[in-house]
Amino acid sequence: MDQGGSNLQVLGVFALLSVLAVGGGAAVIPETKALVIDQHHWLTDDQFRDIYGLGQVVPGPNMLMVMVIGYHVTGFMGALLAYLGFFLPASLISWLASRVWDHFEGSPWRASLQRGLAPLVVGLMAAGAISIAKTAIDGAETVLIAIAVFLGVYFVKKVNPAILVLSGGAVGVALGLH
């Protein structure tokens, strides 16, 4: 289980990702892969895809998958430290910011910040989608599953995304994908 990572490294990596996660979980996927796969060699590309998938089928924030990455590095302590690293710094920043935010009530820069960050976040999410596609799309079957889910989410408004993701898993088993 220990692939050369220490508890301190797990905490450090996910704390860094926490403060960089402007725009949420998807926006930080490329950087997560760069640190976890390329730099620290904690996971292979396929393991990352698998663990990302585990995060998709549980309720709540799907970035809770960082716990499974931590678990792979140093066991349950790694899982706990990945959780603390990924959620505490951003939470602390939000807590402090929400207490001073109202002092800028009339500032027109608040609207500028929101308006300017919106396309940056969409760009980061698109880069996150490209990054996941590079890992998860391999062969015609996976392309077809991705397209089917894309169409389902985009055009069928009331469908629960979790059902589509689980259906993808069922199709994978039925086709014996590997």
Binding site: A26, G53, L54, Q56, V153, V165, G169, V173, L177
Partner: peptide, 19 residues
Amino acid sequence: NAALVGVGAAATGMLAAVT
């Protein structure tokens, strides 16, 4: 393995649509 390959592909499509 097969289930997670399918889930990964589905998650890719979902993220693309949401983006």
